[in-house]
């Protein structure tokens, strides 16, 4: 009796560490921990907490906890996730395209191909803008300007090696200029780079569409194109693809399970996430936050991660941020 009690206690303690996966009958009993590899308040954190709310409100998990592990564009959190959650079916990770780039440019020993993709969740378009009194009126004008003198074409956007930088490099390359010669001035966030755009210190700027939406609508910035493959309702600027450039880049976020999670455990997570994403609660969150739905199920997402990693690596190498 005593021994059983002790075993039970041990199981509780171990269960707390490793999760009590084997004991679960249905997905409604899931007790999950989502790691946001960023500080509280940021993009991945709000995605994690939104997922937490939606999963619990839609009844697809019993309890969900969010843990923040900030550091180095998410690579610190990813390394910890790969190391400590291995095979644990109760641990999830929220991450996005920035982490793909950060893993490469920080020469991190881990990357997103080592974890188990569950679903791609959201994907926000980037936008390319010029100041309102700029002589550049179209994406073709911008390409011509770049071609004429790549050095004096000053780009502003988010951190070096991030999605904004990658898009600027892709456009520079498409203009026929050497992407390693791009004059990209990195700022810490959409706010500071927006000030540089409004102050007329730059030729062109890149940011998430949502961050600069107000200025675009008021006419203080002229949007030339968005990087989303298809037109988006409510956004006037047309996709690069529709303007003859074969460029698409989406600031996506997805959810992952630990390495080595497979079989029933994996199926349970997949179905819980899928049901959540299709729930009214999740739709309401997307609307409130202004996120664009970019759902893709596990298998499609897995292939996507592979191709995205390759693509980002090529671009970062071409601008000298990776070797």
């Amino acid at each position: 009796m005593r021994k059983i009690f002790r075993l039970g206690l041990l199981a509780t303690i171990v269960g707390g560490t490793l999760g009590s996966g084997t004991l679960q009958a249905s997905s409604q009993d899931l007790e999950l921990t989502i790691m946001a590899p960023a500080g509280a308040g940021g993009g991945w954190d709000s995605a994690s907490r939104s997922m937490q709310d939606a999963m619990m409100a839609s009844g697809n998990a019993k309890s969900v906890q969010v843990v923040n592990v900030p550091g180095a564009g998410g690579t610190v959190g990813l390394a910890q996730f790969v190391g400590s959650a291995d095979g644990n079916p109760n641990q999830l990770l929220v991450a996005g395209i920035t982490l793909v780039g950060a893993s490469i440019s920080n020469q991190s020993p881990v990357d997103l191909t080592q974890v188990t993709p569950i679903a791609r969740l959201t994907g926000d378009p980037l936008v390319i803008v010029v100041p309102k009194d700029s002589p550049i009126r179209s994406i073709d004008d911008l390409l011509a300007t770049i071609k004429k003198d790549v050095a004096t074409t000053i780009w502003v956007g988010g951190s070096a090696g991030g999605a904004d930088h990658i898009l600027a490099a892709l456009v520079t390359k498409a203009a026929g200029a050497d992407p390693s010669k791009i004059n990209y001035v990195a700022y810490s966030g959409g706010g500071e780079s927006l000030a540089a755009m409004l102050g007329g210190q730059a030729t062109a700027g890149v940011s998430g569409y949502g961050e600069w939406e107000g200025q675009i609508k008021s006419g203080d910035l002229r949007a030339l194109a968005i990087s989303y493959p298809e037109p988006i309702e409510g956004i006037e600027a047309r996709p690069l693809k529709a303007q003859g450039l074969d460029i698409e880049l989406v600031n996506w976020r997805g959810i992952f399970a630990a390495p080595g999670v497979e079989g029933d455990d994996l199926d349970k997570l997949k179905s819980a996430v899928e049901k959540t994403v299709k729930s009214a609660e999740w739709k309401a969150i997307l609307k409130a936050r202004g996120w664009t739905d970019y759902y893709a199920p596990s298998d499609e997402f897995k292939a996507f991660i592979g191709s995205e990693t390759e693509r980002v690596k090529t671009i970062l190498t071409s601008i000298g941020l990776a070797n």
């Binding site: 951190s159 090696g161 990195a186």
Partner: peptide
């Protein structure tokens, strides 16, 4: 830390 402009550590 990482330099903000070039990403150099």
């Amino acid at each position: 830390g990482l330099d903000q402009l070039t990403g150099q550590a």
